[in-house]
Design a protein around this nucleic acid. Sequence first.
DNA 1: CTGTTAGCGCATTCAT
DNA 2: ATGAATGCGCTAACAG
Lengths: 341, 341
Amino acid sequence: MNPKTAKIKDVARIAGVSTATVSRALSEPGKVAEATRALVLDAVAATGYRANQAARNLRRRRSGSIIALVPNLANPFFSQIMAGISSVLAPSGYGLLIADTRSGPDADGRLAHYLSGNIADGLILLDGALSPQPLAHRPRPPVIAACEWLGDLPSIRAENARGAELAVRHLAGAGHRRIGHLAGPAGNVLSMSRADGMVETLAALGLERRAEWVFEGDFSLASGARAAALWMAMADRPTGLFCASDEMACGFIGALQQSGIEVPGEVSVIGFDDIEVAAHLGPPLTTIHQPRFEIGAHAARSLLAMIKAGTLEAETEVLPVELVERGSVAPPPGAAPGPGS
Amino acid sequence: MNPKTAKIKDVARIAGVSTATVSRALSEPGKVAEATRALVLDAVAATGYRANQAARNLRRRRSGSIIALVPNLANPFFSQIMAGISSVLAPSGYGLLIADTRSGPDADGRLAHYLSGNIADGLILLDGALSPQPLAHRPRPPVIAACEWLGDLPSIRAENARGAELAVRHLAGAGHRRIGHLAGPAGNVLSMSRADGMVETLAALGLERRAEWVFEGDFSLASGARAAALWMAMADRPTGLFCASDEMACGFIGALQQSGIEVPGEVSVIGFDDIEVAAHLGPPLTTIHQPRFEIGAHAARSLLAMIKAGTLEAETEVLPVELVERGSVAPPPGAAPGPGS
DNA sequence: CTGTTAGCGCATTCAT
DNA sequence: ATGAATGCGCTAACAG
């Protein structure tokens, strides 16, 4: 803070009005006469006055910012969501604070810290692995989850199981009957609902489901590459693989290609998320599009509404996903070409 | 802010000391007797007291946060830098605010807003395209650039020209004599120093430099794909391409592969940045590693030092880059295999 | 080492 | 429609 910065008093003196009027002219334009408002604005321009946020926040008993808790800032998956959040926060006069929940030793402790610390007027959780316990009492400030969900916390997310269904049906539609799964981390809600969606769809289609056809991953590129090594070592391989994230799909395909195995020639792959690079791989990745920007934007809007209304509850929203057909799915090796080819 | 939250007065009363002592016990433990400090801590635990940041900030005449200005939050390139920034800010008690400079209509206006708005105690600029004009007066709060640089603003960045040199020498070392460049956006400092480094190295090596071998991009995947289309349409193609970013390299390779052209069989490609996916492509991308996390961390450290010292100047640091050899560079088509192969 | 006092800069009563 | 007065909750001087 600049020491020689103008204060509201200076503006008031120059405009020839009281500080109360300056304050009103600035934040409740309707409650002030046109003429005096002009005077105030002139004085503001003359002094270069900018309201001191700390003082304003103290007086209004708020913090003026929202905090987003992200599991790992270095993970680009979140940047699109953050962009969505920012797009609604910025015009609303709220700042966006971000904190990496996993960087320190005590993730849940950090959560508690932000919850009770008078630091933000609201929280957006992008980390589903936090302990739901501190959230159980629905403490102030209001909290909403984005992409993820925890207990019965309000949340904005995508149709995860539906995405899995679309993926499996697409693979089956291309002729695959041996469909595997590259799953997300065990216990994660996203992993679980995508895996469940897959299992149900397999059953609905009467397709076989084998335990050795599901590889456990952690959404990362590296875990996709590890799954590729396992796949290559198998005697009885699935011909199609539904990956719970594009990153894993990308790691899987890359590792295969590095070993000279062709996609989709020898194995078809479908991802989840539709990250930007998906369209630019060779082959371009067929995937389930998840509206991450929108999820972030909705979460932010919903949170602002909660703050405004003073409530701790909000409607949970589930946003639609859609299949994006690109080039990583083809009929299984040895299959007769379909009628349309 | 919770209405029924404990205030410093409550803690003082319960601990049987004055509010000043509570304040000191919490923020300057050395200046308080062991015994009274224990009393205070007990009272804090009993009441669940958490200092009100707005009040503290008002009194201390600071804002308690640093703001990072990012050109495009959705661009994952920045996430690693943000993680580095966060890693030093979090333990220092500073919040990290982020703002997207390009989302609104008036990027430079936003910069001015954050500069003069009493919003942050310091700024980290990740956007080199902002107008340097408002920065010319070296206004408070202190500002530092990360990755980018503007005018004579303090900055933390990588050896960009050196990276270009390494890249070109590597291509030349593999036998390429027709080396092209996929450049970043015109006018960008990063683009320019990488392009300059390339030109100089070409000259030093006595290699030809042709205007039609340089493609103009914008660091994006899509611009890489566009360059691929141009490359394919050329009669007299370069056999090696130095891309000013991994994203572009990735888009270039992907588009080529989608057209059935092999990398590095028909053209060798080298990137810049070493983004995570680089190692997981087929072929894995040879690139210039740039320590983005460290750049962010250094920038944050340097900015905190500036704030602490009350200065507006800091040492500009240029961090080393290094060549990471992977699989996207091979001898040019038709070349005799090297002795080591 | 500790308590008392006095604001930090603003938004908001309550008057007028 | 405007002004005067009053804290928001905390920390920094200054005494003791």
